[in-house]
């Protein structure tokens, strides 16, 4: 009987919000801490092989976080999970407080503000550098708006600004396929900037680069940090040291250690599994 009364009272109450109407919220997230990315208890396995094993990772707004780890530590798989390419078997992944990454596909995640740079530079090789940036530009990416889209002068200015930033002004109208390896990496970073994401995932940006190119890339990334939150996966220790920041060590699919480069380097576990090989 009381149930019925409750039900009627609820129904009549103008301000009542039904549970299923409530926006889902990350229950664990402490707003005060300002976490932008929140991964907890993520596990995923391929054919019995656990690529990610109970991974927990919290990234604060504006942070530049380096992720290192030996081959097969699950770095790329982690990126895949954040960007929606792979679905984890268990765990939670939230972007900010309200965006549940596990319910979205790649384009939705990209539009929500997570940009990704692949290990191998992938740009639209047959289109010009300018077009590449234009395609990446934030905005309504539906079919009809795209069909009717015209570049406004301010948008052109923005593209030119990014061209300057990545140092490809001279190559503005070259097909992206004609760029050198390093230039492609920069173009890809430029495309990420055009997307103006809140979070940038950067996978081995300096692989196969000359030292000069590497310096330039490091500069680019440190400039970006602050304005954007960046997760950087990298193999090259020197490069990681040079842009010194918070470092997370992954090993066998879970976090082994976290801290500054010095702290991590002096962590005996890390030395054993990873740096030990180099030392």
């Amino acid at each position: 009987m009381t149930n019925v009364v409750d039900f009627i009272r609820q129904t009549v109450d103008r301000d009542h919000v039904y549970d299923f109407m409530m926006p889902q919220q990350n229950p664990m997230l402490e707003v005060g801490q300002g976490f932008l990315l929140y991964l907890e208890g993520i596990s995923v396995s391929f054919d019995g092989f656990k690529a990610i094993n109970d991974l927990n990772l919290y990234i604060k707004e504006g942070e530049l976080r380096c992720i290192i780890g030996p081959n097969g530590a699950g770095k790329t798989t982690m990126m895949d999970i954040i960007t929606g390419k792979t679905r984890p078997d268990t765990g939670q992944a939230w972007f900010g407080q309200k965006i549940n990454l596990l319910e979205m596909d790649e384009p939705e995640i990209a539009q929500a503000g997570i940009g990704r740079k692949f290990q191998k530079p992938t740009v639209f090789e047959l289109q010009s550098v300018f077009c590449n940036l234009e395609l990446a530009m934030a905005g309504d990416k539906g079919v009809m708006p795209t069909l009717l889209a015209r570049l406004t002068p301010s948008q052109v200015d923005r593209i030119d600004h990014v061209l300057q930033l990545i140092g490809l002004v001279g190559q503005r109208n070259l097909p992206a396929g004609a760029l050198s390896h390093g230039q492609k990496q920069w173009l890809e970073i430029g495309m990420l900037l055009m997307q103006s994401p809140k979070l940038l995932l950067v996978d081995e940006p300096v692989a196969g680069m000359t030292h000069q190119e590497m310096d330039r890339t490091g500069e680019l990334l440190t400039n970006l940090a602050g304005e954007h939150t960046i997760i950087l996966v990298e193999h090259d220790m020197d490069f990681v040291r040079s842009i010194a920041s918070e470092v997370t060590v992954l090993h066998q699919g879970s976090v082994l250690a976290e801290g500054t480069m010095q702290q991590v380097q002096s962590n005996p576990k890390v030395v054993e599994v990873y740096l030990g090989a180099e030392a």
């Binding site: 992938t122 289109q127 395609l135």
Partner: peptide, 30 residues
Amino acid sequence: IVTSRLGRVALAIRDAEARTRFTGYKVENF
């Protein structure tokens, strides 16, 4: 269509479908 931005998204899908997806385009709709 092919001279609009839609056309360039189409080319992008043709040449690098995964990249287009990560750039924020719903490839299947296009």
